[in-house]
Design a protein around this nucleic acid. Sequence first.
DNA 1: AACTTTGGCAACCGCCTTAGG
DNA 2: GCCTAAGGCGGTTGCCAAAGT
Length: 241
Amino acid sequence: MEESKEMKQQLKKNLWKPEEDLILRNYVETHGEGNWATVSQESGLMRGGKSCRLRWKNYLRPNIKRGEMSKEEEDLIIRMHKLLGNRWSLIAGRLPGRTDNEVKNYWNTHLNKNGLQDKRKANDSNSHMKNDDDNDDDVNNKKQKKVINQTCYPQPPICIDNGINLAHDTQRRNQEENREVTEPWNMDDITSSHYNINSPIVHANDATFNFDDEPYFDHLDPLFLLEAFGCSSVHASLDNM
DNA sequence: AACTTTGGCAACCGCCTTAGG
DNA sequence: GCCTAAGGCGGTTGCCAAAGT
């Protein structure tokens, strides 16, 4: 059911209260997930459907894992991010109990920051190039933090998501946003030491894929390549990241 | 102790995709 | 094939507690 303009104006925002959580939890346990647009009306919650869905998905549904990320989880996030870029839902899908929002937040606050610090150290080593005004440095750091979220991440062509090739997908997105895009991925990218994939041929169960013949897989989950394939070269590329 | 700044994170927004009519 | 609603996703915002001055 559609949320009218008037209803939208009446919708509550900001943090969820425990009693609201209870209502939502009871409602979903009784009626099941879905039809979020009707939840607010039928449950008495003055929340938008999206808000209810998000709350359930991120905090109320069973098997949600809260608390600090383990070293293994952190490591996996870093490696997956190198492979997939900001595909948080895909990354979160490989971390049982973790949500895309949590992974995204963790990356932006803990891991992305480390990258910036590394960058800054590198800049410091070129201190003769450094501006004397350190205050500006802090300001620039903050600005950089904002900008880095919009960084165009290069995508290896082995990344395919739900039938959409990520390299193409990213390129399309970049084009839509009028961002400058480098050349599309080619065989050199696949076999480059950066991705450490030594052979263009990948075996998946009974199927054989040759990058020369088909540079892009259009109908495979990207991580299918990692798990179902048992593709040692892809695993190796992850291990070496 | 009071005030300001910073960092972490929950939640919202806008866009895209998908499904159903 | 077109339209609409719902769901999903990534980017961004804003609140609040902790740290700093």
